[in-house]
Design a binder for these strands. Structure first.
Length: 479
RNA sequence: GGCGCUAUGGUGUAAUUGGUUAACACGCUGCCCUCUCAAGGCAGAGAGUACGGGUUCGAUCCCCGUUAGCGCUACCA
């Protein structure tokens, strides 16, 4: 069993492409097949090497490793020309000299009068003499497939079932452009043939192209592979996902702090169902369960909320150890990484990660939401001030509380809690008032882990320093 | 316009391939817990399966039509 993913490098890898790649990969990994990567870069204008790099990078990030390739179509040009010539001499293709201008004029005329249009096969019957005469004159030409004029092309799609077209509605499509480059149709079938692809799994936007390709297989007298077309991924407005809908490139999800495993998990469930109750599945489970039978036919809407949920699930359940390198990268990005965190303070760092991971949605949140744990310079966010630092009694109470905590013989969870609560009782205020004020002062946030866990994590020294500091007071009085 | 495909709560999907009070997850609402926010627990709203016809004792499931959406209709893939 051999499958492939064949993106064209005209843009970065988008979520639809990633889903196609993932399905192919899951299919191969689940049944001992080979996953081949091929780059369809025959469109010179729109393809670029940078995009090839982007795509490879995105696939690596997703963890979709390939067994063969990447093969570039631009390196197989001789092969396409050879077969095109073979088709030409077998009278299964012909040279067409119609100019783009002529063609578009005809097409527009047809459209204007509401008539359907397909290439009118003007050059199909050209005599060999005329052809060589025109070529001698240097007239540019393309090679068109000489399709059958009657009959039917049908195939059994593994997902959509039987799909049939009448051949007369298929035009004589172009195989080789006037610049000598093959078109998509020639490229795919030849590559899939040469690379011995057994299952062609791709987006449903190719479903109407398949009959053309089958005609080519027939002309070449080669067996047709299995086809499995995948429903498309749409934006919230049910139109095809595009930049209009926000982020479509998988690298932007990577950069935003999503993790590959939950990202794949989410993608896998777009158009496919494991038929199990649990949806949060590891990559291994996805591999084990994936089957073409579970793929459905209708297009799916990309739901960011659910993706975020998968991500937070994964984060919450992941061992701190595994998250460590990712968080380190985020801290470096924020400029608050310190070498000790990787050595002497490593164990401490892991406990902080365990503390934070339960209420985080993205990896980047560790560096933003959790900044106060790793750095002493942090802002107290406006929301925290507003919610927790307004009380007039606070400027007097907090330094005293700090002193009380500072004098504790043991600085643990229970000790800090009972110290704070008795302090509150002595001063006739609710513990919550002090707790929340401490939250703002210690973390700079209105949202944080349990306050005594925070204190213990920060340690006595930093806790006392932050609680007794008074720089926040003036700001409050102004506001 | 032509051709093709699809159609279950707001979203993703289920429903022993004709027999269920139409299920699960995300999201949403309320309550509990509580030091915030999550998480967790509990309760709940939300679809009668696009619409209309058939077939059948019985249709989410089979057939036809309509509508809508999507795809293809390039010397783009």
């Amino acid at each position: 069993m051999r499958v492939r993913f064949a993106p064209s490098p005209t843009g970065s890898l988008h979520v639809g492409g990633a889903r196609t790649a993932l399905f192919n990969w899951l299919f191969a990994r689940g049944r001992g097949g080979r996953f081949i990567l091929r780059i369809e870069d025959t469109d010179r204008e729109r393809s670029s090497p940078e995009m090839v790099e982007d795509i490879l990078g995105a696939l690596r990030w997703l963890g979709l490793d390939w067994d063969e390739g990447p093969f570039l179509q631009s390196e197989r040009l001789d092969r396409y020309r050879q077969v095109a010539n073979q088709l030409l001499s077998a009278n299964q293709a012909y040279r067409c000299f119609c100019s783009t201008a002529e063609l578009t004029a005809k097409r527009q005329a047809a459209a204007a009068s509401g008539k359907p249009w397909k290439y009118d096969a003007t050059c199909r019957g050209l005599s060999p003499d005329r052809v060589s005469e025109r070529q001698a004159r240097g007239m540019p030409s393309v090679v068109r497939f000489k399709g059958p004029r009657e009959g039917e092309v049908a195939f059994e799609d593994r997902i959509f079932g039987r799909i049939a077209h009448r051949t007369e509605q298929i035009e004589d499509f172009v195989l080789v452009r006037s610049d000598g480059m093959p078109t998509y149709h020639l490229g795919v079938v030849l590559d899939d043939l040469d690379m011995k692809i057994s299952h062609v799994m791709r987006g449903a936007d190719h479903i109407s192209n398949t009959p053309k390709q089958i005609l080519l297989y027939r002309a070449l007298q080669r067996p047709v592979p299995e086809f499995a077309h995948l429903p498309l991924i749409l934006g919230p407005d049910r139109t095809r996902l595009s930049k209009r809908h926000g982020a479509t490139a998988v690298t932007t999800y990577r950069d935003q702090g999503y993790l590959p495993a939950p990202f794949c998990n989410f993608l896998a469930l777009l158009g496919w169902s494991s038929k199990s109750e649990a949806e949060s599945l590891s990559t291994d489970e996805l591999i084990r369960r994936f089957a073409l039978e579970g793929v459905n036919k209708s297009n799916a809407v990309f739901d960011l909320e659910k993706l975020a949920w998968f991500n937070s699930q994964y984060l919450r359940n992941a061992p701190a150890e595994r998250l460590f390198p990712l968080i380190r990268a985020e801290l470096e990005k924020e400029g608050i990484w310190k070498e000790e965190l990787g050595s002497s303070d490593r164990a401490w760092m892991l406990t902080v990660v365990d503390l934070l991971k339960k209420r985080v949605r993205m990896v980047s949140d560790f560096a933003t939401q959790g900044r106060a744990f790793f750095a002493d310079d942090f802002e107290i966010e406006a929301k925290a001030r507003r919610k927790f630092l307004k009380d007039k009694a606070l400027p007097l109470l907090m330094p005293d509380l700090a002193a009380r905590l500072g004098s504790l013989p043991v600085f643990g969870l229970e000790e800090t809690e009972s110290a704070l609560r008795t302090f509150a009782a002595e001063n006739g205020v609710k513990a919550g008032l002090l707790i929340n004020a401490a939250r703002a002062l210690l973390t700079g946030k209105a949202v944080a882990p349990g306050i005594f866990e925070v204190m213990v994590a920060l340690g006595r020294e930093r806790t006392v320093a932050r609680l007794s500091g008074t720089s926040w007071v003036e700001n409050e009085q102004e506001g």
